[in-house]
Design a binder for these strands. Structure first.
Lengths: 167, 167
DNA sequence: TGCAAATAGTTGCATTTGAAACGATTATAG
DNA sequence: CTATAATCGTTTCAAATGCAACTATTTGCA
């Protein structure tokens, strides 16, 4: 009602969880990304695709989008670059000509193997600021906050698999 | 070396902290943003500016950018809309004609007072998934991970203030 | 004082991003 | 079997974003 600030309850942005998460996430991601963007000419999107293809072989573009929680358009465009640079090989599924079958090429593996330790080191650097108990708490908290809102399909098949090769 | 996947150690993206933070942050922010974007035609950037002006009166555009950790260009453009819609009043500092003096207008306060409870409710919904101990741990963890990388100027003056009015 | 450097805010431009639409293919209902 | 709907990946186009350049003003130093 009143125009004087005393009568309002302003949000304390710096304590507001969504805001803090956003800050932390951006800062952490960018710190790591700067490294491999310069040294390997990889965007965050592209690196995530490499990472998920290193873990799960022969995914389709849609599956990559699901597992990385990225837009299918972003995935399509990133794949165009990755395939063009020869880091990812793309075939088409014999039984369903709509689906692509994506794999890391030898060059893709080399880039992955160079970037992965770098990314993991960054993560370790972060986590060393926390006590062992806090690290465990963080993992549990992320589980609790992360599960439930995520697309249910994501929960079903998180194991590596060797799907039928394109015939 | 080898081309077979057995000889590599793929990153487990779904356990990788920067990735998980990114997912969680995006999901949380978007969930809240959808609400007030539709109902009040406010972008995240614009809402953050309203929030920080509700908390700290008569900031300059640069100070808003600092406190929201956003780009000064983004702030400038968001302010153009907010001032245009009459949610924020902009004067110029008497002693320094470069600086703007930004305040929430009566309309701006009304929008803030409508959005703030909505945002806080979303935060509460999130936090109810956690135990009391976990909530405390999360706050501590965010403090530890957040401090240190942040611009040091940010640490000095986080208390509300009543700066000298434009003369 | 006078002039170079610094600061506040805006604008221009090129890149990135996302939503809807699209063509091609496959699944499903009748 | 046919037609309708659903799926996969790409394209298109408009909006958001970020960087550098720019104007106007102020600061600092010789």
């Amino acid at each position: 009602m009143s125009r004087t600030r005393a009568n309002h309850v302003p949000i304390e942005l710096e304590r507001f969880l969504p805001y803090r998460l956003s800050l932390l996430s951006n800062r952490v991601s960018q710190a790591i990304a700067r490294d491999y963007e310069r040294r390997f000419d990889l965007s965050v999107t592209e690196w995530r695709i490499l990472a998920v293809l290193a873990r799960f072989d022969a995914l389709s573009a849609r599956e990559v989008a699901e597992r990385t929680a990225m837009d299918k358009v972003a995935v399509s465009r990133a794949l165009m670059r990755l395939v063009g640079r020869g880091l990812v090989s793309r075939r088409w599924h014999g039984g369903d000509k709509r689906r692509s079958v994506l794999r890391l090429s030898a060059r893709g593996w080399r880039v992955h193997d160079a970037v992965a330790p770098l990314a993991l080191q960054h993560e370790r650097d972060l986590l060393t600021r926390l006590s062992v108990a806090e690290r465990a708490a963080l993992a549990r908290i992320l589980d609790k906050l992360g599960a439930g809102t995520f697309p249910p399909s994501e929960r079903v098949a998180l194991r590596p698999r060797s799907p039928c090769a394109p015939r």
